[in-house]
């Protein structure tokens, strides 16, 4: 099937990419790309599959980062153990916060998550004895699996790439499972889904907890890679960046967030040549893309397919984005 061949080709390309980069800085950018892709995939579960906008996602990234960082610097726990514990800690927070916040929908849900996120930020910023407050935690040891340490950008890239592929596959499997179809049913029409016997609240809570667990994982990897974290990791600007990545790429798809992360990192990097105009051009392109391409970058592919199919009068294929419940 063309689909599988395409997937394999894409994964192979991602694997050789760092060897083509040529310098360590480009490898660092690639690692950042994968990190954003991982976090965007987790946010996409809430935005794309549950159809709710969360403003608290960065707080869970922060919980994961702080959990693993504190465990390794204070208790000397190996980062490999810190990683799953970070995911568990973030998921626990996700469970409690989701349990409260998912009772409301729409803008109210958004503000509730913003509120919970801000409270987590404030606690992190003020609980100096535990988190060292605004001073942050420094000298976090690098990630290590047995004798293998992930200190360089290239090593970190492969570590996160593996996670991105795993999460991507998980999302794909999820969407095509009973639970995943329940997600989409809830997103499209919650009352109808409820009448079909789907427990809307539990379905949403499950999605939210999975998303926060992955966010925590991403936060832990970030902490061990950058080696310094401050409460700013939980800030609203990080949430805005992730929302941009998901929607620009195409919410509700798997390729979308990964593509969105590439464009986000790549564009901001390329626009450095613009000097002081950098962020202005970035914002203008962002607004323009949203106005002219509301379904995100993946919708470009869908449009091309639609016109292509119409021209050749072919039967509808099993395209990647549509199989995962594209944005419309």
């Amino acid at each position: 099937m063309g689909h599988t061949v395409g997937m394999a080709g894409g994964v192979a390309a991602l694997c050789v990419l760092p060897f083509l980069a040529g310098n360590a800085y480009l490898e660092h950018l690639l690692a950042l790309w994968m990190l954003y892709a991982l976090l965007a995939l987790s946010l996409n579960i809430v935005i794309g599959y549950l159809g709710e906008l969360t403003f608290g996602h960065a707080a869970f990234v922060g919980v994961g980062a702080y959990t693993s960082a504190l465990l390794s610097t204070q208790l000397g726990l190996p980062p490999l153990l810190g990683l799953p514990l970070a995911a568990v800690a973030a998921a626990l927070f996700g469970l409690v916060i989701g349990y409260a916040a998912l009772r409301v929908v729409g803008p109210q849900f958004t503000i509730l998550t913003l509120g919970f996120g801000s409270i987590l930020y404030t606690i992190t910023n003020n609980w100096v004895d535990l988190t060292r407050g605004p001073m942050g935690i420094s000298d976090i040891p690098p990630m290590a699996i047995g004798p293998m340490t992930f200190t360089s950008a290239r090593e970190t890239y492969f570590l996160i790439l593996a996670l991105v592929l795993a999460v991507g596959f998980l999302c794909h499997a999820l969407v095509n499972s009973r639970t995943g179809r329940a997600f989409l049913a809830v997103r499209e029409n919650a009352p109808l889904a409820a009448s079909l016997g789907i427990n809307v609240f539990h379905t949403k809570l499950l999605g939210f907890v999975v998303a926060t667990a992955i966010a925590g994982l991403g936060g832990a990897i970030y902490a061990h890679y950058i080696k310094v974290i401050t409460p700013d990791i939980m800030g609203v600007q990080n949430v805005a960046a992730l929302i941009i990545v998901v929607i620009i790429g195409g919410r509700g798809t798997i390729v979308g967030p990964i593509l969105g992360a590439l464009v986000y990192i790549g564009l901001l990097e390329a626009l450095r040549v613009a000097g002081p105009l950098r962020m202005v051009i970035f914002a203008a392109l962002l607004t323009g893309t949203v106005v002219f391409l509301p379904g995100g970058l993946v919708s470009l592919w869908q449009r091309w397919r639609t016109t292509h199919k119409a021209d050749n009068n072919l039967p509808a294929g099993n395209g990647v984005p549509s199989a995962e419940g594209g944005a419309e």
Partner: peptide, 15 residues
């Protein structure tokens, strides 16, 4: 979609 409008307002804010 509301998310599209929302992101466009976010883009305008950045701009």
């Amino acid at each position: 979609h509301e998310f599209t409008i929302l992101l466009s307002s976010l883009g305008l804010a950045l701009l």
